[in-house]
Write a protein that binds this DNA or RNA. Structure first.
Length: 860
RNA sequence: GGGGAAGUGGCGAAACCGGCAGACGCAUCGGACUUAAAAUCCGAAGGGUGAACAACCCGUGCGGGUUCAAGUCCCGCCUUCCCCA
């Protein structure tokens, strides 16, 4: 047997062995091998959409991180659930299929096979017996089943909602397909137009989605983003009757106190009353404006920096707080696209004195501006949005803002002109797509226009096999063309019915997949209560911060609905959330800004040049993307350097949470480290599988000399490994283990077998293959993957003597060694002596002693 | 526009509660081993002034502040990255 570090042979050997031994199988209650006394640990990765281009090293970093945690937990004796699957439905898969002219079912199967192969090569310890695919009918029948529960609860409803429409492509586009009002594909102009859509009433859960964030062990920034997204605001709704109509316009405002400053109303262009209240003289101008704003995205419409546009409707409303005959009682109604239809009531009372957008608008169109809150004396702005004493506000004058809000709300209630109101920025979730590759809705449309759902016993509603699944030119879903599939019968009375032709959005499967992993092959229910009670909630959820808002909010919403139905026993699905950072990469641009593939770049001392012609290049840091020509494929890294080297490098690059640039050059350090570990155990010049000194522990009962020093070094390293595993910044664990290897190198022959074993155990979660190989060479029975985690012995962490820095007036001037138990006075004396000329002849006015760290002498 | 995160050597980074800035690596340079090279091992290295492994000064994006002591805390800016139904 060759005796050098052969990563290829080692990695294939142990991956095969682990698979054969079924080592990473998680035991469900009631199955053979299940031990109720063993604690569970559920570590979940955000499952990937299996794209055609395969996995790159940026995807791998989160998976490796969670795998390291998982492997440590197994060694600590937990029953670990660590599953993986495929988020396979959705737009990208469909797009890819249309481009290649092949069916998404086929491309998805190929892509998942490739992803799985890549993940296995990295040595990730997934329980593959639980693999699921959201586009597999065995999975999506339960997605439909859960949707059916939502439908029964009245949480799903149909409504007209604005969707992007591209006239050129003759298709409905998703938000992510429209950039700056133009289609991503082809760069054609798009407009928003209303279409009947399925909506989910997530707003009914807004309060709970907000409140329950408090108890979660999630990164604070993510919680903050969710809170911002939900956007709770307290205020009032106020009714403004129309001058010549029975209708009234209801507005929401967070500043009811500023009612007397409201000089006009502004409606969103989509407001339902727009057409009705407009007198014929103004119809043409209003219609033109409504069409123009349909072209804009919300981003453009609400951009504070852009000029506000709007148009007068020709109609007036009655200001409820002014007496009849008061000229201020009649206020004009305008339309402007900075008001969004979906927020509040799609209408605002404009208070130009206290709101900058209203102010800008009033100035542009010459509308009156009244200030009703007194700004501080040094205020120099235009609209004053802060708090203050009320002025020009009749019976509110003199009150402060808070008191004025309360009094106004009381008045609104008393006069039936409004009431207190809480609104949320969060809107109901547009849940249908006019696309092929998604879960069909389990719904039937009857001839009388009513909608009934497919009974549970008739599920699944299978997605029909279609050859042409492109979106239709009239905006209808491709499923509308599946004639045979379309026809159905009312399950109750047998009347003819038509299936719903929309499909669910890409998010649907990811709203409950962690529950399916608990009991993936259950054919009677989405998951058993027993499995959920045992495995839930997810203990650690690892994924990109990119999903901070939408996926996590949607998933929490579904989970809460299931909680209310008694189907899950926790209010929240993910106890701890961790966001891995983005792996960025260098990309190179020439003078014209064109991207140059990374492998055509040469680095020089002065900078970077194109290999072919020596043209100077600029280096930029971006994310890894095929379009930027800077993607690094893990297969290639594993071929050349090994999976363990890839794992060590990705964990050594920096804290898992940080984004950091990939640099293939730096791999060498990680590979060298593993080679040094290898040589610590194996003498490559000899045919022996192991250095003779490590065969049995020859150490006597008490450690001394270099072996004692190594013991202290090992204990310090183990302590740092434990700390770093808790925080998931494995870079410091690896640094500590490297430091230990350096110490061993300096003390030839001092390393004991016990020390060698404990070192190996601590490294095993990060570099499992090489550690398993050496573990077996040490003659151990059983896999290192299930061997007990090494414990820190605190006795070795304490030294008798400590070195202190001696500062004089805050600057380090000397160092001094003192006994660990030295008193303050002793330390001060030693420090004074060490400070020498710096303190000589000076008066020490103060001494600060930080035990074990430093002494600061303040002298005059 | 709104929201979030981050700026430390040539590069990736470390520094736990405010306590010696730059651990551990990469790249670089020097030495040992070698006929030679690779590999390996040993060593140097933030910047400046200096002949100096002497000594001192300056240094954590920029400008202020608090403190015996600030990468870390406070105030105001600049830049970059991520997300937006």
């Amino acid at each position: 047997m060759s005796n050098h570090y052969d990563h290829r042979a080692i990695e294939t050997r142990w991956q095969a062995a682990w698979r054969e031994q079924d080592l990473f199988r998680a035991r469900n209650p009631g199955t053979p091998g299940f031990d109720p006394k063993v604690k569970k640990y559920y570590a979940l990765d955000m499952f990937p959409y299996p794209s055609g281009s395969g996995l790159h090293v940026g995807h791998a970093v989160g998976y490796i991180g969670s795998d390291v945690v998982t492997r440590q937990k197994r060694m600590q004796g937990y029953n670990v659930l660590h599953p993986m699957g495929w988020d396979a439905f959705g737009l990208p898969a469909e797009q890819y299929a249309i481009q290649t002219g092949r069916h998404p079912r086929q491309t998805t199967a190929e892509n998942t096979a490739n992803f799985k192969r890549q993940l296995e090569r990295i040595g990730l310890s997934f329980d593959w017996s639980r693999e699921i695919d959201t586009s597999d009918v065995r999975t999506y029948r339960w997605t439909q089943w859960i949707f059916a529960r939502l439908f029964d609860l009245g949480l799903a409803y149909q409504a007209e909602a604005a969707v992007w429409w591209c006239e050129e492509l003759k298709t409905v586009l998703a938000n992510e397909e429209v950039i700056n009002g133009r289609s991503e594909r082809g760069n054609h102009l798009c407009v928003r137009r209303p279409l009947k859509q399925w909506m989910l009433r997530i707003t009914a859960y807004a309060e709970r989605l907000l409140d329950d964030l408090d108890d979660l062990d999630w990164p604070e920034p993510i919680k903050l983003q969710q809170r911002e997204w939900i956007g709770r605001s307290e205020g009032a709704e106020i009714h403004f009757p129309l001058e010549n109509s029975a209708h009234k316009i209801t507005v929401f405002t967070t500043r009811p106190d500023t009612l007397f400053g409201a000089t006009f109303l502004v409606l969103a262009p989509e407001h339902p009353l727009v057409a009705e209240l407009c007198p014929p003289s103004h119809t043409a101008a209003v219609q033109t404006y409504v069409q123009e704003s349909a072209r804009k995205s919300e981003l453009e419409r609400t951009d504070l920096a852009k000029a506000k546009t709007g148009v007068f409707t020709g109609a007036y409303a009655v200001h409820p707080a002014f007496e009849a005959g008061d000229p201020r009682r009649k206020i004009p109604i305008w339309i402007a696209d900075y008001v969004l239809a979906q927020y509040g009531f799609g209408a605002v009372m404009a208070v130009p004195g206290q709101d900058q957008r209203d102010y800008d608008f009033a100035r542009t169109y010459g509308l009156p501006i009244v200030r009703t809150v007194e700004p501080p004396g040094d205020f120099s702005g235009e609209a004053y949005a802060g708090a203050g004493r009320m002025i020009h506000s009749a019976w509110l004058d003199g009150l402060d803002t808070e008191a004025a809000k309360r009094k106004t709300i009381d008045w609104l209630i008393a006069t039936q002109a409004g009431c207190a109101r809480v609104t949320y920025k969060l809107r109901d979730w547009l849940f249908s797509r006019q696309r092929y590759w998604g879960e069909p809705f389990p719904l039937l449309h009857l001839e009388d226009g009513s909608v009934v759902r497919v009974p549970d016993s008739d599920l699944p509603v299978t997605l029909p096999d279609m050859q042409d699944f492109r979106p239709a030119p009239d905006g209808s879903s491709p499923l509308a063309r599946a004639k045979d599939w379309l026809q159905a019968r009312d399950p109750k009375r047998g009347r003819p019915a038509r299936r719903d032709t929309d499909t669910m959005p890409g998010w649907a499967g990811s709203c409950w997949y962690w529950l399916r992993f608990m009991d993936p092959s259950n054919e009677r229910e989405p998951f058993s209560a027993e499995a959920e009670r045992y495995w839930g909630p997810v203990d650690l959820y690892v994924g990109g911060a990119a999903h901070a808002v939408m996926h996590l909010l949607y998933a929490r919403f579904w989970h809460k609905v299931l909680f209310d139905l008694g189907l899950v026993h926790t209010k929240e699905p993910f106890a701890r959330l961790f966001n891995q950072g983005l792996i960025t990469a260098h990309a190179y641009q020439d003078a014209s800004g064109r991207l140059v593939p990374s492998d055509e770049v040469v680095a020089h001392a002065q900078g970077f040049q194109r290999r072919s012609d020596g043209a100077p290049l600029e280096q930029i840091v971006t994310k890894m993307a095929k379009s930027l020509k800077n993607v690094v494929n893990p297969d290639q890294i594993i071929d050349e350097h090994g999976a363990d080297t890839l794992r060590v490098y990705e964990m050594f690059m920096g804290p898992l949470a940080d984004s950091k640039p990939w640099n293939t050059r730096d791999l060498a350090g990680s590979q060298r480290f593993l080679e040094r570990v290898w040589r610590m155990f194996v003498d490559e010049a000899s045919p022996n599988p192991l250095r003779p000194g490590l065969r049995v522990d020859q150490q006597s009962a008490t450690l001394e000399g270099p072996s004692l020093e190594l013991e202290k070094a090992l204990q310090r390293a183990l302590q740092r490994v434990d700390d770093s595993f808790k925080a998931l910044n494995f870079n410091t664990a690896i640094a500590a283990l490297m430091g230990f290897v350096n110490e061993v190198t300096k003390r030839e022959g001092a390393l004991t077998r016990s020390q060698a074993e404990r070192f190996l155990l601590a490294l095993a979660p990060i570099a499992p293959h090489v550690c398993e190989e050496l573990w077996q060479r040490l003659g151990n029975q059983g896999s290192i993957c299930l061997a007990p985690w090494p414990k820190v012995d605190a006795r070795y962490l304490i030294d008798d003597e400590v070195e202190l820095a001696v500062q004089v007036n805050g600057r380090v001037r000397a160092r001094v060694k003192v006994a660990r138990e030295a008193t303050g006075v002793e330390v001060e004396q030693a420090a004074l002596q060490a400070a020498g000329t710096w303190a000589e002849g000076k008066i020490v006015v103060r001494t600060v002693v930080v035990p074990g760290k430093l002494v600061n002498l303040i002298v005059q």
